[in-house]
Design a protein around this nucleic acid. Structure first.
Lengths: 187, 187
DNA sequence: TGAATCATGTAATAGGTTACATGATTCT
DNA sequence: AGAATCATGTAACCTATTACATGATTCA
């Protein structure tokens, strides 16, 4: 993992987890092992090289507690550049391709968003998320209508499953919006 | 992609698409480009090496149409071993980890299943899929109940989104089961 | 014949997986 | 002191991505 040219999703997950708090690589691994978070490998071969890459790009810094031993716990924290990169990622527009193939990325962004960017930005994100879903679902429906004749029954059902998933996600987004709008009003 | 030791998900997608019909690498690429299928890259750098790997493992064979030129369309088809490997994959049990982190694999299997294994096997698959979902959802709910106190609002909502997704999937499985049971009865 | 598209390929690179190795700390 | 677990690392391998290259076919 020399000189990553772009930060990977795992990289952003690590940045997000480090926002506002210190943690060691081990702590971050445990997060992946013990919580439903992300869907990232907890293997050291994934995390430590990724952290090294973030450090090389000066997005995080590490401090060996007391003595400068080679082994032993190292506390990691975001640099100003790390916070900026995290915010840049969280702020990037929701596009159709995200909804069609990278919903996991969107949900990861959402999970960090309100703590990092605040409620207004989160609401804006949810609005464009909903919009992208409302655009995407009819596309799939149209495909289903046009092709259901020469699709196998299970192929048809599989596509319907996808559509249902997006619709369920849209319902969730609507609920999330109402939660955030409620809070916003009450402030 | 020398001597793949295991067939990847892309490999199985290709085997599934080749079941019962001939196609070229280009045809397969077009399937990924033009349909909502899978969520696989249509890049030649992914598909041709994968096809080469399947050919080396004798799961598919290729025939250059007439003349033995190096370029030009090559029709691919499954070997007996390819069909067997596809069936083996489709028949493998649904485990908790599949539901928790590889739902896409399960849906891909489902999409091919009824054409390759038939209705009885598909129903069996759906039953165990439903069972795995019914086991998994309470696990997530419990996590949410136990930890919602010290989770951020957006973290909480993100987890709820996951739970809703699984519940929606479970509803879909129930509907698919009723479709298959209906057919089975009427035969 | 030239342009478009059909059709296949490869090289460089990146980053994850698996498996292993090993030092540090804590608890009994 | 020994075991468990905390904590970090690395090497081999595999596969996807990106970008490029190029031959074949079709059709205006």
């Amino acid at each position: 993992m020399r000189t990553m040219k772009t930060v990977t999703l795992l990289g952003y997950a690590l940045l997000g987890l480090l926002h506002g708090k210190l943690a060691s690589g081990y702590d971050l691994r445990k997060t992946f092992t013990d919580t439903p978070m992300g869907r990232f490998s907890d293997s050291p071969g994934a995390i430590y090289p990724a952290l090294r890459g973030l450090e090389e790009r000066k997005l995080i810094v590490s401090r060996s507690k007391d003595r400068a031993t080679l082994r032993g716990r190292r506390e990691l924290s975001l640099t100003a550049a790390g916070v900026a990169e995290l915010k840049r990622w969280l702020s990037s527009p929701v596009d159709q391709a995200d909804v069609a193939g990278r919903m996991g990325d969107l949900m990861l962004r959402f999970a960090f968003m309100d703590g990092v960017l605040g409620e207004i930005a989160t609401l804006t994100f949810l609005y464009s998320f909903a919009q992208a879903l409302r655009t995407h679902v009819p596309t799939l429906r149209k495909y289903l209508d046009d092709h259901s004749g020469h699709m196998s029954r299970s192929g048809r059902l599989a596509l319907e499953s996808g559509i249902c998933g997006y619709e369920s996600q849209l319902e969730w987004v609507a609920r999330a919006i109402s939660v955030y709008e409620g809070t916003e009003n009450s402030k």
